[in-house]
Design a protein around this nucleic acid. Structure first.
Length: 357
RNA sequence: GUCCGGUUCGUCUAGGGGUUAGGACACCGCCCUUUCACGGCGGCAACACGGGUUCAAAUCCCGUACCGGAUACCA
């Protein structure tokens, strides 16, 4: 089967350093596959289903970052919001087949407190005792559901997750992943305002784009179980999954724009004059390493021009990265992006021995 | 709270039953001299903790601690 991968950022900010690495790994994987199958593709999809937070400026910023890094998508860019009708159709189909149901519970008003915190607090309060299947509309009769909907009562569409069983998949990086259905809620597919939600949109688009390998951050590990449930309901075989270890801030904390500022943005490095080849190499080595033996060989026989008058170090140009890349050399522990005591400039241009002039 | 991950030099990492635990960057010293984005040589520096299995454990198993992720009509 021809390899088709996609990088799918949401345009809610600039190109994050972690996202850039995800883009890189997807790109390297596709290009490596292309070595043996010319039709292998690297695609770009902008996940702009969050109407409230997505901006065109952010999309532009992401595109700029991609361009700087040299990752050109092989097909036209897909904007997820353009596929909303298809997502809705899929949700309705599941509804008609009884695999999803209408939830007439009034939408909760957002609190002013941090959403994340609210959710965490609530989950803590409920402890492990929460019953994911306690929705009173779950077993509502089809007629009554139809009637209430016809009367204009607002509803969200939720996936009807089976009571017993578990989802499981073999992650290319993390190995066998299993999760009991009791741990997974009846996730919302379509909001009461008719907008499709992330998990549904991702699955529908990945199916349509014929994605064969989903390579993304480890923070999507639990989403994967939800998505597999959707694939199953839709009756489609799911793609392979490979989750990447996170890139954290010094101290092992999450790298965030709010706390760490511009340091997490790709444009910061571009504007500071770093070379793409250096930054790519730096990014590639966060979470992945080449096979020891071929590493030495490749590096010494690499691009002479770049290394003229410079020591070898651990630098690989794009072609070398592509040649050496493989999913099974990605490890599972998070990397710390140490920008405090270890100036990124040194981590890239200087330490890898490539000057600008 | 619950579920899922993770833990090798300061940092990125290799190694995954028997190694002087290797490399890169940083740092220190010397040399060269292109004197803060060149180069060479050398040095410092790590297997989270506690049990177990084994002739032998950084490597396998269990537990603890700590860190992270997820737990949303966000993505």
């Amino acid at each position: 089967m021809t390899t088709r991968v996609r990088f799918a950022p949401s345009p809610t900010g600039y190109l994050h350093i972690g996202s850039a690495r995800t883009a890189l790994f997807n790109y390297l994987f596709a290009r490596h596959a292309k070595l043996s199958d010319a039709d292998s593709k690297f695609l770009l999809r902008i996940e702009d289903t969050d109407i409230a937070r997505s901006t065109d400026e952010s999309t532009r910023s992401i595109l700029e970052g991609m361009e700087w890094l040299g990752f050109a998508p092989d097909e036209e860019i897909v904007f997820q919001s353009n596929n909303a009708d298809k997502h809705r159709a899929a949700a309705n189909r599941l509804l008609a087949e009884g695999k999803a149901y209408r939830d007439f519970t009034p939408k909760e008003q957002p609190t002013d407190a941090s959403v994340k915190e609210t959710i965490k607090e609530r989950a803590r309060a409920q402890g492990g005792a929460k019953n994911m299947r306690d929705n009173q509309y779950r077993e509502l009769s089809a007629v009554e559901s139809e009637t209430r909907a016809a009367n204009g009562e607002p509803f969200a569409i939720r996936l009807k997750v089976p009571e017993m069983g578990k989802t499981s998949f073999e992650d290319k990086v993390y190995g066998l992943q299993e999760r009991n259905y009791e741990e997974t809620e009846d996730l919302v597919l379509l909001r009461s305002d008719g907008h499709p939600l992330y998990n549904l949109a991702v699955v529908c688009d990945d199916i349509e784009m014929e994605i064969t390998h989903v390579i993304r951050g480890q923070d999507h590990l639990t989403n994967t179980h939800k998505q597999i449930l959707i694939y199953e309901a839709l009756g489609v075989k799911h793609p392979e999954f490979a989750h990447l270890p996170l890139i954290l801030a010094p101290g092992g904390k999450k790298l965030s724009k709010r706390i760490h500022g511009e340091i997490v943005s790709m444009t910061t490095y571009r504007d500071a004059g770093f070379l793409p080849v250096a930054f790519r190499n730096f990014l590639a080595l966060m979470g992945w390493s080449p096979d020891g033996n071929q590493y030495a060989a490749e590096v010494t026989s690499g691009n002479e021009k770049i290394r003229e008058n410079a020591h070898v170090g651990e630098l690989m140009n794009l072609n070398e990265l592509v040649a050496n890349f493989s999913l099974d050399r990605i490890h599972r522990s998070p990397a710390i992006f140490n920008f405090d005591s270890n100036n990124p400039k040194r981590c890239t241009n200087r330490s890898h021995g490539i000057g600008q002039g």
